[in-house]
Structure formats: C-alpha cells, structure tokens
Write a protein that binds this DNA or RNA. Structure first.
Lengths: 200, 200
DNA sequence: CCCGGGCCGTGACATCTGTCATGCCCGTAA
DNA sequence: TTACGGGCATGACAGATGTCACGGCCCGGG
C-alpha cells in the first residue's frame, strides 16, 4: 500500500484527485493539505511514501516544501504545476523532487507517476523535459533576477533599492540591462516575461 | 440522464471531474473541451443539458461562452473559477450563467450543482454571494477601467493612448485618478489590484 | 431656464524611470 | 604580474510618468 499526501490550495482539484486515488487498490491517501506550511508539518508527522505537491501554494510553494522534506523526512515528492516551463522544472529538480507533472496532463497519470516514484524511480514529463534540454536558461545575472523579484508587484525603484540596500541608480541600471536582454521596454513587461518563463 | 459538457483548459482537473461525474448514475459527460471556442462549437452541436465552464480559458473565457450559448442553444451554464471575487460573480450572472462555483469548493459539489441547475434551479456559492452583497463595486469609471485594461501588460502610456485614440495626457490623468482611488502608487499595482478584485 | 455635479479630455509642470559612461572588484589567462 | 572580461555599483542626463488646474459635455434638480 502506497501512502500518499496530497497538497494543493485549490480544493476542487485536491478533492477530485483524492477521490480518484482512493479508487486505486494499492494507494492510500493519508492526508490532504491546502498550503505548504501545513504540508511540511503533516508530512513530518505521517511520513507518507509519496507527497504530491502543487507548485503554486500560499505560504511555502511546492519547491520549498520539497527542499524541507528532503532534509528531514524519508519521503519522495512529486511536483504538479499549472505553469510547466523549463525554468520551473529546473527549480523543481534542484530541490530534489522525484517527479514533475504539468496539470495539463490527464488525472490518470497521477496514479502511474505515484507508483513509479514510490518504487524508487523518477518521472519527468517528457514534453517539458524536451523543452528544458533544447533550453533557454535565464540570460540574466543573479542580481538582475533579485531586482525583478523585488519589483514583481509594481514596487517603485526607490522601494526596490531599499529592500536590496542599493542606490536607486543601481537598480535602474540592472533594470536597464534586463530590458535590453529581454528586448522589452518596461519593467512590468520584463517581470511578466520572467514569470512566464519560470525564472523568478 | 443529465447530459453534461465540461470545458477547462487544465487537463488534469477536466479529466478528474469527468471521471468523478461518470461515477454518478444520473449524469453523462458527453464532451470535454480545452478552450472556449471549442466549447461553443461542441455545445451547439450536442446541446447538452448543462455546460460546466472554467472562467479562465484561452480563446473565449467562460463568461463569453455563456453569453454566446444563451443566445443560440437551450442549455444552462455553470461557471467554475479559481478567482471567485464579487466582480467576477457579477460578470458571470450578467452573462446569464445559472451556476457559479469557486474552485476552492470540493469536487463533490459539482455533481450537486449540476443536478440543481439541470432541474431549472440556480446555484451561487453562498460565500462569494455574501461578499458580493456586502459589496465593493468598482469605484472606477468606465474609461478608467479601459485604461487599466489597455495597460495590463506593461504597455507604455503612449501605446495605451494610441489604442484608445486619446492624448497621452488624458491617459495619464485617468491613471492618476485610479491611483488616487485605489490608494496605490503605480500603474502596475493598480492593474494587479483590479485583476485581483475581478474588475478587469 | 440655469445651476451643480460627474465624467471626459487636455496641457504645463515636477518627479520618477531608463540610458549611458564610468569606476571598482574579482577571477582567469597570458 | 599584468591585462582582460564580467558582474556590480553609481551618478548625470533625456525621456516617460504622475499631479494638477482647467474647460467642455451631459444629465438631473431646483
């Protein structure tokens, strides 16, 4: 019997998956969680064989949950996400995830991936993997990514500068470099593009 | 037997719901669609009793699909969405939807709502309805909303002005009014807030 | 009728943002 | 060691953005 923890902030898909998985004779859903923090706590208590984690969750996201669990619990994590971009896959694998499945795939595949991962294997969606190999890796430097992250929600340059302890001019310069590399004209467009590609 | 069409661009949830609904003895899933345009075409051909439509879809969104179907086919639409805000509910009901269900609800409820709608009733999620009554309606004027929409993706003021056939100054003035009303400091923050609240 | 209020459109002005040239620091190759 | 390249930080400058005060339009109430 494979003991599974399910974490997704979207109740409908979480309960639907749980119901489907309960129909499988060799799978037992031992917990359902609605956010990352809860998932970590519950997983540490129950030590499920496999954790199926949504990437986008309030509190800790799927990648952060995976990192913590890999350091503390003997469990294997499958990350499920709506935005299946090469950058996201890279982050997921770097965090130690054993499986990666876009939500564009059918629900049937979840059980199959769980079995594979539970038996010690790994699973990465072939299509995203192909993209990740042909690959565009972020052409941005660390500091440039920092600036984009700090300016994600339309923060003013001054605010970004304060959060990063920089002079406003420096922030503007990083932004300028980004705009050039990404061939866009606005900070907001740069942020949207970077989110789109899973760089931040 | 209630004949149901399911439309959602996220394959995992679509297939999961379909699988669960097929377990219900009185419900038959006659079609699954991945975008709005397809949903309209298929619904016109099959005339299902109930259409379950995701709000966020490529091509036509759930509200637009509902509008078109209400003009052409004898079917009833349930709109399902991840972002269940009063503004969204308002738009959904204005389009003639018979049901409104946030994705935060459990998957079990879908079948219940389908039955209710199929028998001529309406269903609106009580929690969102309460929010919509206590109500925050957009404090923004039509033109201000136009400007926000045109500037959604970080477009420059000049571009916005051109798409709306306005002088740049006018656009700036509308933006300024919005920033004041919404108590934020940036156009991007205003856009994010308006999207958040379902105003655009 | 005339007035007031709300919304729209516009231009002048101050401020903020992006561009550019520059200097610093560090790791590496000659 | 020296020279070079890359990333980081900064300030001066030009252009875009937001603020403000103004005038026109329409509608409903004295």
């Amino acid at each position: 019997m494979i003991r599974v923890l399910l974490a997704d902030d979207e109740g409908m898909i979480r309960s639907a998956l749980a119901a489907l998985l309960r129909l499988e004779p060799d799978i037992e859903v031992v917990a359902e969680c609605a956010d990352g923090t809860e998932a970590v706590a519950v997983a540490q208590r129950l030590t499920p064989d496999v954790c199926v984690l949504d990437l986008e969750m309030p509190g800790l996201d799927g990648v952060q949950v995976t990192e913590r669990l890999n350091r503390t619990v003997a469990t294997r994590c499958v990350i499920v996400t709506r935005h299946a971009r090469p950058g996201v896959l890279r982050r997921a694998l770097a965090s130690g995830a054993a499986g990666f499945l876009p939500k564009s795939r059918s629900a049937d595949e979840v059980a199959a991936v769980i079995r594979r991962v539970a038996s010690g294997g790994r699973y990465v969606d072939p299509e995203v993997a192909a993209d990740a190999l042909s690959d565009e890796r972020p052409p941005l430097t660390d500091r440039e990514l920092d600036v984009l992250r700090a300016g994600r929600h339309g923060e003013t340059t001054g605010q970004i500068a304060r959060t990063l302890s920089l002079a406003p001019g420096t922030v503007r310069n990083h932004v300028s470099a980004v705009l050039g590399k990404l061939q866009v004209g606005t900070r907001q467009q740069a942020v949207l593009l970077a989110e789109e590609r899973g760089w931040i």
